[in-house]
Amino acid sequence: MDRRYAELSPAEQVERRREVLSHIHDHPELPIHRVVALLRGGLRFTLSEYSRLTGVSARVIQDIEQDRGNPTLGTVEKLLAPFGLKLAVVSSRIGE
Rank of each mutant, 00 (worst) to 15 (best):
V89D: 08
A37K: 12
F83D: 05
R17H: 01
R34F: 02
A88N: 04
F83P: 12
H33D: 10
Y50F: 14
S92Y: 05
L47C: 05
E15P: 00
L39M: 07
L79P: 06
A37Q: 08
D63W: 07
V35K: 02
L73T: 15
R34K: 13
P71E: 10
Q66L: 14
V76F: 05
E77N: 14
S51R: 03
V90Y: 13
L8M: 13
D26L: 10
R59S: 14
L30Y: 09
E7L: 11
V36E: 02
V14I: 07
T75P: 07
S91Y: 07
A6Y: 03
S91L: 09
L53R: 14
Q66H: 12
P82K: 12
L21M: 07
T54N: 08
S92C: 08
F83C: 12
I94Y: 15
I94G: 04
G95A: 11
S22V: 02
E77M: 13
L43D: 02
V89R: 13
R59F: 08
K78A: 12
Q66A: 15
L43V: 01
L21Y: 04
V56Q: 03
S57V: 08
R17N: 02
L73D: 12
R59Y: 02
L30T: 09
E65P: 08
I32N: 05
V76M: 10
H25F: 06
P71C: 14
Q13Y: 01
R17E: 06
R52T: 03
V20R: 00
L87G: 03
I61A: 02
T54A: 08
T46N: 07
F83M: 12
S51L: 10
S91T: 13
H33A: 02
A88Y: 08
I24R: 01
V90K: 15
I32R: 10
G42P: 03
D26G: 06
V35A: 02
S57P: 10
R18T: 01
P10N: 03
L30V: 06
T46L: 10
E96M: 15
Q66E: 13
L87M: 11
R40W: 03
N70W: 12
L80S: 05
L21A: 01
A88C: 13
S22Q: 15
L21K: 01
R68V: 04
G55W: 10
R16Q: 13
Q66N: 11
G42Y: 05
K78G: 01
D67E: 11
L30A: 04
G95S: 10
G42S: 04
G69A: 07
V89I: 15
Q13L: 04
L8D: 02
P82V: 10
A6M: 03
H25L: 10
V90F: 11
V20Q: 00
L21H: 04
T54V: 04
K78Q: 15
S48H: 05
R68M: 11
R93K: 12
R93M: 09
L73R: 14
